[in-house]
């Protein structure tokens, strides 16, 4: 078990390093520099700025400097937003995105998993058909359709909730609903599938033949195995919620990291792109590691393999 976690941890570090390198070289391969955009800057000043940020050095040397800086927690300056370091921007916006993202993920789990369990246990009844049809709708309506539609209905027509900004708790509801609906639907379908597979196993028949009550069979005998598909999807779900936040933060004008990332990508803000990508990737790698650990904890057979 400890060996397994250590192995996965090392693997995660390697993956992070690879992501960092790919991002760096991808950004470096982009023609021009962050400063060669719209504003007309005299060439000698541009050269000075580029030298200041190290853009005149060979690319490998820049990679090395950048990597060591990042490892010491220094992400560098924002090339576009003068006087602000990437660390500042992250410190300011990360709490916003963290709040939105964790509420969304939690909501997705709390809605999706119980729905999936009930649908599996009561399969082929309306408790199965209705939530599964709704979940299909949730999967087919992407965030950028769902977001504007929710904003239109609840914000502009019914005037129940605010549609832009980030001030009080009521500002979280629509964006979090937009973000979590897809994943709630996905978790519901995964859980239903996992639970159905468990409920069709021979050992369920054994439990019935022992006189175990139906819901005890569900909780005690099937839940562990039935949750595995949902658990393994945690990492991809977090990745999806992060990229979904790019859209949702744009739609609802939320000052989070997602909006910054889109701006950074559009403006070629190299250090900001790199810093945010590494941060996102690290979050996802950690989530995958946690999911792996949970998977092993749930499935006794994995421990011995």
């Amino acid at each position: 078990m400890a060996k397994f976690i250590a192995l996965r941890f090392l693997q995660g570090l390697l993956v992070l390093l690879a992501i960092y390198a790919i991002t760096f070289f991808l950004v470096a391969a982009t023609p021009g520099s962050p400063f060669s955009s719209e504003r007309a800057i005299p060439p000698h000043i541009l050269a000075q700025i580029e030298a200041f940020y190290g853009y005149d050095k060979p690319v490998l040397e820049r990679f090395w400097t950048s990597l060591t800086n990042t490892l010491s927690g220094e992400f560098g300056p924002s090339a576009v937003y003068a006087n602000r370091s990437v660390t500042d921007i992250i410190a300011e916006s990360f709490p916003v995105s963290l709040k939105l993202g964790s509420i969304s993920l939690l909501a997705a789990l709390l809605i999706g998993i119980p729905t999936g369990i009930v649908a599996a246990v009561r399969r082929n009844t309306w408790l199965d058909y209705v939530p599964m049809s709704v979940s299909m709708a949730g999967i087919c309506l992407p965030t950028f359709v769902m977001g504007p539609l929710l904003a239109l209905v609840f914000g502009l027509i019914l005037r129940l909730l605010p549609v832009s900004g980030w001030y009080g708790p009521e500002y979280i509801i629509l964006p979090a609903a937009t973000l979590s609906l897809y994943y709630a639907a996905y978790f519901a379908r995964l859980t239903r599938g996992g639970m159905l597979e468990m409920l069709n196993q021979d050992f369920v028949r054994t439990a019935r033949a022992k006189g175990v009550p139906e819901w005890t069979i569900v909780w005690k005998h099937c839940l562990k195995g039935g949750l595995i598909p949902a658990i393994t999807f945690l990492g991809p779900a977090l990745a999806g919620i992060i990229s979904g936040s790019f859209v949702v933060e744009t739609i609802f004008q939320i000052p989070g990291l997602g909006q910054w990332f889109v701006k950074a990508a559009l403006n070629r803000d190299d250090f900001l792109i790199l810093g945010l990508t590494v941060l996102f990737a690290a979050l996802i790698v950690v989530m995958n590691l946690l999911a792996d650990i949970a998977h092993v904890a749930l499935n006794p057979r994995l421990k011995y393999e």
């Binding site: 021979d202 439990a207 005690k220 005998h221």
Partner: peptide, 8 residues
């Protein structure tokens, strides 16, 4: 398959 693999 008749014994539950997830439980001791």
């Amino acid at each position: 398959t008749s014994l539950n693999p997830f439980l001791r």
